[in-house]
Each structure stands twice: as C-alpha cells, then as structure tokens.
Design a protein around this nucleic acid. Structure first.
Lengths: 243, 243
DNA sequence: CGGGGTATTGAGTGCCTTCAACCCCCGTGG
DNA sequence: CCACGGGGGTTGAAGGCACTCAATACCCCG
C-alpha cells in the first residue's frame, strides 16, 4: 500500500475551509452537512513526491480526495511502458470502485508533495446513505471521468503527435485555469517530458522535438516545471483541430 | 435521431424470455420483478444495418438495451477519422448518462440488423427508485465500462499494431464465448477491416497485412464476416504480451 | 455473370522511434 | 562563490513501423 503520513489534527484543513472543495465530491454540500461529512473523513495525510497512493492490483479499502498537489494515475504494460490515464489535480476524487473486494486496475503516484483526504469503505457507505446528493454527485464524477477517458482514447488513437501535444496542454491549461491559475503568466507545471509523453502515447524524445517546434512558433513554452502560453489563440486552434 | 422501427406487441420478446438478459442490466432481477420492469420498457424496436441509434451531439431522451445484433459506439474527429470506443453485443446497455439534458459524446450505429429495447428518461427514473438493485447494477455496468475504456486507452496508446490486433480479437473472442458462441468453429464476425482498424487506431491497410501474417502463422483467420481461431493458445500468449 | 463492396498486395514515403551524445538547469557541498 | 553531479531536456543520425496511394483480387449477391 501507500506510504501515507497521517497529519495531526492541528495540521488538518477542515472541509469547510478546503479550497479544493468546489471541484470535489462535496461540491454540492451545504455548510451544515459539511461538518457532518467531515466526521466521516477517516484521515488527512501527506504523500511525498514519488510515493504511491496505491498500486495496480491492490485492494485499497478507502477512497481519496486529493486536497492539494499533483498525482498521476497510470496502467503498466508488459513491455515496461505505462499509459498515464489521468493527471490528478486538487479536488480530484481518486480510487473509487463499486466493489472494494476487486483489485484496482491502475496505480496512483504523487509527482509533487500531496495532501490527501481518505474515506474508508464504511465511511463511504454511510455517507452515500446519509446524503442522496452525494450519490448523484458520485455518478456525475464517474460519468465525467468516463467521458474524458473516451476523449483520450480517441485523440490518442487517431491524431498526430503535434495535435496530441496541443490538445493535452490545452486541456491541462483549462483545468488549471478552473483552479484559479493565472494563465497569462507562466504556471507551475511539474510534468516531465516522460510523463506527458506517456499520457499521449509518444516517446519523450519525439515530444521534445515537438515542444521545440511549438516554442519556436511562439505557441507554448513548456519546460522545467513551468508552462507558459505564448499564443492562447493559436493553441486553441491547434487543439480544436482534433475534434 | 435514429430510425427505430417499433415492433408490434406480438413480435416482441418479453424480458423473461430474453436470452440477452443474463449479460444485461436486468441480470439480478427475479421473475416477479421482471414483469414489473418490463412495463417500464417504452418500446422494443428494430434497427437496420447502417442506421444510427443516435448521433454525437444529440440528446436522446432514452436509454437502450441491445437485445440482439451488433452495434459500434464511436467518436468522430475533425479530420474525418473515427475512434470506435466499443463493439456493442447482445445485452449491452447503451446510451446512459446522468443528465439527459447534456448532449451525448459519441454515436451508435448498427453494423448488423438489431433489436433494441428502449427505456425513456421517466421509466429509468422510476425503475431506479423502485429497485435499489438496479441502481447498484447500473453502477457496476458503468464501472466495468470505464475499466474497459482505460484498458483500451492503454493498449491503443502503448502497443505495436500486431499486439493490438491480437488483444482486440482475443477480447472479442471471450465476449462471444460468454454469449454462447462455439469458438472451436468459425464464429460469425461482421466487423470489417475498416472497423477493427478504427477500434485499435491503425489503418485498414496495415491491419490487413497483419491479418495475413496472423493467418499464415496459423493463429487466427479473420475475414469475410467470420472469425476462426487456429491456435487458441498462441493467440492468448500474444494478447497477454500487452499487459 | 456482372457489379459493388471488401480484402490484398506493391511501391514509395514519412512520422515516429531508438540509441547515444551533449547540454542545461539547479541543488548541494566544499 | 564556485565546482560538481545528477536529472531532465535537446539534438543528431539512422532505421523501421505504419501510412498513403493505387492497382488488383476476391467474395457475395442479385
């Protein structure tokens, strides 16, 4: 299992104060219910860069909300490669499955230091019973995730490398913007070439060549943990050449 | 919308008699509840080869169970290509989404003549209220579909063409076997080169070369609406070289 | 026995990969 | 303050897998 370091009570953030809540599972909850829900939170923990929340094949008996930090969700292949399925950002709901007895089919690793809220199997059951809204919201989250996965499959399966990069970066940009990033200035962006390449199904070397091309044509500059948009419009045009 | 031809009552199959039920949404239902559920079925219809159940961007106000036949679920891309997301077989639950006001993000087309059961938005709501089991089963179906999509993304993103073909055919084989096909003999298999290629993200020409290779090395023979396994074990070995 | 759709084959091209070397950035420690 | 080291990023050369385009063969159906 993971190497979660449980935070002391005084270090914890309450659900009410949590800045990630508006993107998260508890988005629709009122202040009153939030306090109750928070009691179901099994723990709030810290996960350091490179550590795993869980690995493919394990049966984590909990579900997680990423309160802060970046994680990658990925599947490993027999040839040693990996497909990154999702870049987890603040507010993302991680590791849910209907049947907790079934092993999970992907791994989650922290690519920055993270703060993570855990809800045990039992807590989840009770939460879902106590608040119909939460079941609905869970369905919503699940559906949205499926939709994103279909989109990913489609562009990974059918586009050229350049379009893949543009689409990926554009998508990330919008997610960061939603979370309050100022995209007119360079944004903190801790993904390496390797990681971006594994997310879109090309090699990091080829990604690099394309990155250079995109930088030279003054569209985006993405290096060294930062992402800078040089021409927002051009990037949008490229990205929308996919669908 | 689609070109559904509603069947007359006497032509219809009851849920109780339905041979696809054990793979479908109503799998967990008792004989007694089935009769009730069937009343919620809005219609049973016929969809001819090449016709659409619905198209990307539409807002179908119903959900469907494929009772018989084959369909493809796919997304269209700006360059005219398409990614086939799923090959729908008997029992498959099609077109569900949480919010019926949202446009659907993929199309469904019949690739053989099909019989399809429709449940209107209202019927679904009532069914879900009436039977907790159905909500659970719906979640199960949804989760399974997400999992399959993640698997697809991974092998489409990270494998070579040959492995993609082997994995795809092996997967189809198992699904057909589940549905009672005798895989020791040639099986009816109405997918064209074009369709298989669009499902695994290669061109039909290249797929053809690989098909020839697989046939010459006596692994599978897949042509002209039939699929014949020549060496079950070798196919399995190839397919399991992916994950 | 055509005719249309599907499958196969060939030739030529190019996108992307592989492998390997080099560079740059940045943190660390002397 | 600078030397050092390491990890990520960049570049080059060479090759191969998969693509494009186009012609031919095959299968099935009317």
């Amino acid at each position: 299992m993971g190497q979660l370091k449980v935070l002391k009570t005084k270090e914890q953030v309450t659900c009410l104060e949590c800045s990630a809540r508006r993107y998260a599972w508890f988005k629709p909850c009122s202040k009153e219910t939030l306090a109750l829900h928070q009691e179901r939170r099994t723990s709030q923990s810290h996960l350091a860069v490179g550590e795993y929340l869980f690995m493919e094949g394990e049966k984590p008996r909990a579900v997680y909300t990423l309160q802060d930090g970046w994680v990658i969700c990925f599947k490993s292949l027999a040839n040693g490669q990996r497909q990154i399925l999702h870049i987890g950002l603040a507010g993302d709901f991680l590791g849910y499955r209907v049947n907790f007895d079934e092993p999970i089919d992907y791994s989650i690793m922290a690519i920055t230091d993270c703060t993570i809220c855990a809800f045990s199997e039992q807590s989840i059951d009770r939460l879902l019973q106590e608040d119909i809204q939460l079941t609905k919201r869970l369905f919503e989250i699940h559906s949205e995730a499926s939709k994103v996965c279909r989109t990913n499959l489609s562009y990974v399966g059918q586009s050229t490398a350049k379009l893949k990069v543009a689409f990926f970066l554009n998508k990330m940009l919008h997610r960061l913007k939603e979370r309050g990033a100022d995209i007119n200035n360079p944004v903190y962006f801790p993904l390496t070439r390797e990681e971006i390449a594994d997310a879109i199904g090309i090699t990091s070397v080829h990604l690099c060549r394309i990155s250079v091309e995109l930088r030279r044509s003054k569209i985006v500059d993405c290096r060294h943990n930062r992402l800078e948009i040089l021409d927002y419009k051009k990037l949008g045009t490229l990205a929308s050449a996919v669908f």
